[in-house]
Write a protein that binds this DNA or RNA. Structure first.
Length: 818
DNA sequence: AGCACGCCGACT
DNA sequence: GTCGGCGTGCTC
């Protein structure tokens, strides 16, 4: 191959102004080491930065400026050409720089930094006054010759010009180096070089009192290979004190070797065998297999109730895909909460599976990623970002519980795993399977439209009955004089469980913000006239008001209920702590484990708390929706939802959908074992369709109702939403940016009937970390038709926002407006 | 994003 | 007179 003249490089600089390829000459020496996707170090202005090659060309429009590539960072390009294209698509779809897209694709920490060492070539001829910069710099250079230039400059910015001058004058020399973010991990290994005859003499020579040493030596000899030191110590009970004399005598050799970090430990478990499929499962399996084998990109919605045996269908479909030498990705919402799923995959596929998720250390992630890139595994199980697994021949991507909000990335680029999967499916002619008992409304709508193929799995594999769901009307409770947060039925239910030694789970479905206003007498909830979104309670300067977080509408807090004229209008926003206090009062004898963001911040906090509950250390588990997924405890016979309202009246048009999904999930999971389960849902709105349909697990009816609602309000799936958030410590500045953005969008999109602009309004999280936040929301039918104006307005105002000391973010296809 | 260059107020 | 504040503009 004739070496191309120029490499087109995207530099790792997060600024829209440099988000385009720069041309670099390819030195002959590096020609056979550069490919599309190769990471390189390039001179960029006065410094060196990391970059990625996205292409090659024979010409450049800036021939007088081109410089050569400085360094090639890896021998195998981390990005395949497919992934380079995917990064390009990500940056266009979610409006981020290509550099940011590439970072989202690669395991965190896989970054190299340019380093520069300064060496004194000739001492500067002048003698400098003590205390002058010159003498200080000279002293520092002599004292710490290993400090990098970057370190020196960050400690003493004022030295920068001096260093530059001395380099120019030839007093100093710059030596370039690279610091890699992640190193391959090494571990100490032990082995014995002794032959069998040597061993005997050695054992004889050792003192009879040196029992541990002899054991250690024999153990190593019997092993016949190098063993990891920590394992040897663990098995033989030896320590470094035992080892030391053996090393000194040369009986044992210690060596550092590279190892793959194995986050799940060595798996000895026997492989599980495929289970026989029910006719329903068989049908689902065949449909997926046909799609994969067809070699045409397709999306399938696998709509199966909890317990319908979706996992076994996934396992067998993946097995079939892998047999054809194509690879598969399995996404799960929160891997820390679904260890069973990982276990099942490990058992079925053994070493063929890599596991990727956010709780792995940087090094562990890197190792798993490398196993994938090198083709050592064909299957990946992981959370959201695993959708970027660097496979080169994808056949199948499965997204389990596809409706879960965790599939939307919460920082830039704010991608939706489902969309990424569908893009990759087009690239690889692969199949996407979206699995859920309660699909996202959009997904179900696409199935209705025929864009997505739908398979139903309506019955449970073992035909268990769903638990009884009781909906308690809290208005009646209030009328009969019960002012506490527990209905009498729930109180009684908990008492019974405590007496019988069974367990209770209580949900407080709260997201930690957004106080809504409700009449405790009649259940009236204050809503926006235009958006129908529940209004949010605000208190400023003693004035109580209600505001819409979508369109900005505001009114005074009514003193009496507009509906029933009663005076029980209250704002709601109970936290788990308050419920815990209340539980302590009502059931002083019960032990309670509380799980929410505050108690689960540690690395294994989730697992620890859940296992303590499983062991019976507490009778009541109280938590937010995060516990809904771990819900599989044999002794739990009662699940209580403290207030369905808290999710029903989030200032979010998806609130009804979320409530329906959560209640269905709770009901579907409770009482899976011998003991019959009961679910109690407390609410002031028992007649609400989300609650009524969830009570009987009627997804289709819910869908039918909700989709009409969405249609009349121009919400997804009929319009897509993109949200901008302007953030600034200064309220006026934040508001100004938001207003200007709104203005510019209106001007460029004026008169279009496929676009709706919801004006500047305070964000649901109106103040976060002392900063004010304002939203502008854009609704449109097709992204293609608005992407250019959006990009223009966003990029120019992003710069403005920064000048004012704040920032502007964008969330394309926002799933939740915060 | 950095980093350099360039034009205005308080000081070795 | 200089030093060093941060506004503007460029990076193959």
């Amino acid at each position: 191959m004739i070496a191309p003249k120029y490499a087109e490089v995207i530099v790792e600089v997060k600024s829209a102004s440099v988000d385009r390829p720069f041309h670099y000459e390819v030195p002959a020496l590096l020609a056979d080491r550069v490919h599309v996707g190769t990471r390189v170090l390039v001179p960029f202005g006065p410094r060196r930065v990391e970059g990625y090659i996205v292409g090659f060309s024979e010409t450049t429009d800036a021939p007088d400026k081109t410089k050569p590539l400085a360094e090639v960072l890896d021998d195998e390009p981390p990005l395949t050409p497919d992934l380079v294209k995917l990064a390009g698509w990500l940056s266009e779809r979610y409006l981020c720089t290509k550099a940011a897209a590439v970072q989202a694709l690669l395991p965190s920490g896989m970054r190299a930094k340019a380093t520069t060492f300064l060496r004194i070539k000739t001492d500067p001829p002048d003698v400098y006054l003590p205390g002058s910069w010159e003498s200080e710099l000279l002293q520092e250079l002599y004292q710490s010759p290993n400090k990098t230039k970057e370190q020196l400059v960050s400690e003493h910015t004022e030295w920068r010009p001096l260093i530059r001058a001395w380099v120019e004058k030839g007093f100093l020399e710059e030596l370039h180096g690279v610091k890699h973010g992640i190193q391959a991990k090494t571990m100490a290994f032990l082995f014995t070089p002794l032959t069998s005859a040597d061993l005997q003499t050695a054992l004889d020579e050792l003192s009879n009192r040196a029992k541990k040493q002899k054991e250690l030596l024999s153990y190593l000899f019997d092993a016949g290979e190098a063993l990891m030191m920590k394992d040897v110590f663990a098995v033989t009970g030896a320590s470094s004190a035992t080892l030391k004399p053996l090393l000194d005598k040369g009986y044992v050799v210690k060596e550092e070797r590279e190892v793959n970090r194995d986050p799940y430990g060595i798996q000895h478990a026997e492989k599980s065998q495929p289970l026989p499929l029910t006719p329903t499962q068989e049908n689902a399996y065949q449909t997926i297999k046909t799609a994969v084998d067809s070699g045409a990109p397709q999306t399938i919605l696998l709509q199966g109730v909890t317990g319908s045996g979706k996992t076994e269908v996934y396992l067998q479909a993946i097995a079939s895909c892998v047999e054809q030498d194509r690879q598969a990705i399995m996404l799960v919402p929160e891997i820390a909460l679904t260890p069973q799923m990982v276990e099942q995959f490990k058992k079925r596929f053994g070493d063929e599976v890599a596991v990727l998720h956010s709780r792995l250390s940087t090094g562990e992630k890197y190792d798993e990623w490398r196993r994938i890139r090198h083709g050592e595994v064909n299957i990946v199980v992981g959370a959201r970002s695993a959708i970027f697994a660097p496979f080169d021949s994808l056949g199948l991507m499965i997204i389990d519980e596809e409706h879960e909000t965790s599939y939307k990335q919460d920082d830039h680029p704010k991608y939706l795993a489902r969309e990424v999967a569908m893009y990759r499916a087009r690239q690889h002619r692969a199949t996407v399977v979206l699995g859920s008992a309660t699909p996202a409304l959009e997904t179900r709508w696409w199935a209705h439209q025929g864009i997505v193929q739908r398979i139903e799995m309506p019955e449970r594999v073992r035909g268990q009955k769903l638990p009884k769901v009781r909906v308690i009307d809290m208005r009646d409770e209030l009328q009969s004089g019960n002012r506490s947060m527990f209905a009498n039925a729930l109180k009684q239910g908990i008492e019974e469980r405590l007496e019988r030694g069974e367990q209770v789970i209580l949900f407080l479905n709260r997201r930690g913000f957004a106080t809504f206003v409700l009449c405790r007498s009649c259940g009236y909830v204050a809503r926006c006239r235009d958006c129908e979104i529940p209004l949010t309670y605000h208190k400023a300067r003693g004035l109580e008001s209600l505001r819409c977080h979508y369109c900005g509408f505001a009114e005074r807090l009514p003193e009496t209920c507009p509906d029933c004229k009663g005076d029980h209008v209250r704002h709601f926003g109970t936290g788990t702590q308050r419920v815990e206090e209340e539980l302590g009062k009502v059931f002083p004898e019960a032990k309670v484990i509380r799980m929410d963001v505050d108690t689960t911040s540690g690395k294994d906090a989730h697992a620890t708390l859940l296992s303590r509950f499983r062991k019976g250390e507490a009778q009541i588990l109280l938590g937010t929706q995060m516990i809904a997924k771990g819900l599989d405890f044999p002794k739990v016979t009662l699940v209580g939802v403290i207030s369905a309202e808290t999710s029903l009246y989030l200032p979010d048009f998806r609130a009804a959908e979320r409530t329906f999904q959560l209640l269905t999930q709770v009901a579907g999971r409770a009482g899976r074992h011998e003991l019959p389960g009961e679910v109690i849902v407390q609410t002031y709105n028992p007649q609400h369709y989300a609650i009524q349909f969830a009570k009987h697990q009627e997804y289709e009816k819910f869908f039918d109702h909700e989709v009409r609602h969405r249609y009349t309000l121009n919400n997804p799936p009929f319009f897509e939403l993109t949200a901008f958030t302007s953030v600034n410590e200064d309220e006026m500045k934040a508001l100004h940016i938001a207003r200007t953005l709104e203005d510019r969008l209106r001007r460029s999109l004026d008169g279009r009937d496929d676009v709706i602009i919801l004006g500047t309004s305070p964000a649901p999280l109106a103040r976060l970390q002392g900063k004010y936040r304002f939203n502008v929301v854009l609704k449109y039918k097709k992204f293609k038709g608005v992407s250019a104006p959006i990009r223009e307005a966003y990029q120019s105002l992003q710069g403005e926002a920064q000048k004012l000391g704040g920032y502007l973010t964008i969330d394309v296809n926002a799933q939740m407006i915060l």
